[in-house]
Design a binder for these strands. Structure first.
Lengths: 339, 339
DNA sequence: CTGTTAGCGCTTTCAT
DNA sequence: ATGAAAGCGCTAACAG
C-alpha cells in the first residue's frame, strides 16, 4: 500500500530542507519565487495533503468541535446539526458527532473520547438520564469550553435553550382560546427540565385564563413512543375520562393520541383538539395535519456554535457564560380549531 | 486555563522516565509492581488522559473511520449510522460523520478533510449529484480503504447495497396481485442508480405478470418533496389520467400522492392503492398507514462497517472487493388492499 | 526493571 | 533566502 506523501518526501526530492518546503507551501514571502514555484508544483504533482494530526499536535489545536446529543433520528436534532455545521464549516472547523442514545454511560465515554481527541470545544445536549455532571465538569476543568443546548443543566456554562415554558403556555392558551377548556397533558419524563417547563406552561395558562386545573389532567407518557401514548389515551377513554383537548409533549406522543381518538371514532379537532411539540417532519403529512409548537433547531445550532467558537477564541481570558433562550412559534394546522 | 496533563508531567513529578510511565500505565509486566502502582495512582489523581493525537501520529493509525452520507435527516440514514456505530464502537473505533447535503463539492471537501485527519477507512454513500469519482479514487490510491453503501458507484470497491430491483419488483407485484393493473410510478432522479433499479423492477413486474406497460406510466418526481409529488398527482388527475395504483420511489413521494388523492376525494386503497419505499418513521403514523418496502438500514450499516474493518486490518495484502446486496421486505399496511 | 534516544509530520525560532 | 534543530505527546527499540 502507498504511504501518504510528507514534507520530508518533497524536501528530499527537491534537495532542500523541510522547513523551506513548509514555508514555500504557505506562500511565505521569505522564500524565493523560484523555489516556491518548484515546491508547489511538486506538491500538486504528488498530491501532497498536510497531515492534520501533526498540525494539531504541533499547534495544540485541532480545529474540531465535538457534538454530543441523544439521538440522530430526532428530526429536531438533525436540524440543530445543520445549524452547527453551517457555522463550523464557514469558520474552518470540523465537527465530530457522538450519539449518547440517551445513555449516561455512553455520554461519559463520549466526553472522554472527545477530550482525548483534543477537540477545541464541545456542544452538548445531555441524555435524559443524566443526573450527575462530573464528566462535563472534568472537561471544563481541563480548559475545554462547553456550550449546552436544548436541555438545561445545573452547570455554570453557556446555554442555548428553547423557551419551553412559553411553548407549553402558548399551546395551552391556543387550545383554550379555541374553546377547549377541559384539557389533558401528555407530559414527558420527570426530571427532564424541558418537559417540566412545558408542563409548567400548561398549568400557568390554566391559571392565567381562569380555567380550573387539577393534577389528574397530567398523564405522564415517559417515552417518545407513539404506541405507548396510543394506549394511554385508549385507557383514559375506557375509564370514561372526559376531555376536549390534548397538549402532547412532542409530536410522536400527539400522533399516538390522535390514532387512539380516531380508533375510538372521536372526531379531531371537533370533539377533541390536539397540539404537539417540535414540528417533526411528518407532522404536516398526517391527517388531519398536526398543530404544533416549532422550535428553530437550525437557529439553535448556529447560536450554540457561534457562542462556542467565541469561547474557544478567548480561551485564556475568562468569559462570562451566556444563556440564550430562543422563542418558539405555534404552527396552526388541522388538529385544532383555529378561530 | 489549565493545560492537559502529559506523561512528562507524571514523570517529572515521580522522578522517573516518561517511558517508564508509559509502560506502567499500560500495565507492562516489566515494570515493578511498586512503580506501576505509584504511576497509576498519580495518573488517576491528576486525571491523566492520553493524547489521542500523539498516539495516532505515533502509530499512523487513528482508530477512526469517516462516514460520508447525503443527509442526516433521512430516517434511513440515521438507522445506517446506528448500525455503523454498533460495530465501530465495539471494535474500539470512533466515527466522524460528514453530510454532503447531496452536493458534490461538499463531498469532495469531506473526503479531503477525512483524509487529512488520517481516518483509517471511509464509509460512503455518494451524493445524488456525483458523476465523477476522482476524489474517491484519489483516497483509495493513498491506501485508505473505502466501502460504499446504499448507492452504487462505478468504482472497484466493496459495496453494500439494497436490492432495489427486487424492492421495486415486489412492490409492483403486490399492487398487481391485489387487483390493481393500471399502475403509475413516481420515479426518482435520473442517474441515481438506486431509483433506476426500482423503476426497472416496476417495468419487469409488468412484463412477468403480463400487464401492459408504457412509458407514460412513469412520472419523474425528481426530489424528495411531498409538495412536489402532490402537484404531480393533482396534475395527472386534472389531465384525466386513469390509474388504480401508485408505486412511489420513497415514502415522502407516497405521502404527497396520498394527499393529492385525498384532496380529490379518491379513496385509498379502494380506488387507488399506494406503496412507498424505505419505511420512514412517519409511515405508520399517517392515515391510512402506508404500505412500503423496508430496507434494513441497521444491517446495512453493520455489514458496511464490518467489511471496512476487515479491509483496514489487512491493509497491506490486497483484498478482493466484495459486493453484498441486502434483501428488502414488504410492509403491508393500509394504503394497499392486502388480500 | 528502568533510562536514553529516535522519530511519527509539522512549524518555528535561531542561525547563517 | 534557506537550513538546522527543537519540540508538540507518545512509544518502542536498544542499552544498561
Amino acid at each position: 500500500m502507498k504511504q501518504a506523501v510528507t514534507l520530508k518526501d518533497l524536501a528530499r526530492e527537491l534537495n532542500i530542507a523541510t522547513s523551506t518546503v513548509s514555508r514555500a507551501l504557505k506562500g511565505s514571502p521569505e522564500i524565493s519565487a523560484i523555489t516556491r514555484a518548484r515546491v508547489q508544483k511538486l506538491a500538486k504533482e504528488l498530491n501532497y495533503e498536510p497531515n492534520a494530526l501533526a498540525l494539531s499536535l504541533r499547534h495544540s489545536k485541532t480545529n474540531t468541535i465535538g457534538v454530543i446529543l441523544p439521538e440522530l433520528v430526532h428530526f429536531f436534532f438533525s436540524t440543530v446539526i445543520s445549524g452547527i455545521e453551517d457555522i463550523a464549516y464557514s469558520r474552518g472547523y470540523n465537527i465530530i458527532i457522538c450519539q449518547s442514545n440517551e445513555s449516561i454511560d455512553r455520554e461519559i465515554l463520549d466526553t472522554k473520547a472527545l477530550f482525548n481527541h483534543r477537540v477545541d470545544g464541545i456542544l452538548a445536549c445531555v441524555s435524559r438520564n443524566t443526573s450527575v455532571y462530573d464528566h462535563f465538569i472534568a472537561i471544563q476543568d481541563k480548559g475545554i469550553p462547553i456550550v449546552f443546548f436544548d436541555r438545561d443543566v445545573p452547570i455554570d456554562a453557556s446555554k442555548i435553550l428553547s423557551n419551553d415554558f412559553e411553548g407549553g403556555y402558548n399551546a395551552t392558551k391556543h387550545l383554550i382560546e379555541s374553546g377547549k377548556t377541559n384539557l389533558i397533558h401528555l407530559s414527558g419524563p420527570e426530571g427532564l427540565m424541558l418537559s417540566e417547563q412545558r408542563t409548567r406552561g400548561f398549568v400557568q395558562a390554566h391559571q392565567d385564563l381562569g380555567i380550573p386545573f387539577n393534577k389528574e389532567k397530567i398523564l405522564r407518557c415517559g417515552d417518545e413512543d407513539a404506541q405507548e401514548n396510543f394506549k394511554i389515551i385508549q385507557n383514559a377513554l375506557q375509564k370514561g375520562m372526559k376531555f376536549d383537548g390534548i397538549f402532547a409533549v412532542n409530536d410522536i406522543a400527539a400522533v399516538g393520541a390522535l390514532q387512539a381518538l380516531q380508533a375510538a371514532q372521536i372526531s379531531v379537532p371537533q370533539e377533541v383538539a390536539i397540539i404537539g411539540y417540535s414540528d417533526w417532519q411528518f407532522s404536516s403529512f398526517i391527517s388531519p395535519t398536526l398543530t404544533t409548537i416549532r422550535q428553530n433547531g437550525n437557529e439553535m445550532g448556529r447560536k450554540a456554535a457561534e457562542l462556542l467558537l467565541e469561547e474557544i477564541h478567548s480561551k485564556d481570558t475568562f468569559i462570562e457564560p451566556k444563556s440564550i433562550t430562543l422563542p418558539t412559534e405555534i404552527i396552526l394546522r388541522g388538529t385544532t380549531l383555529n378561530k
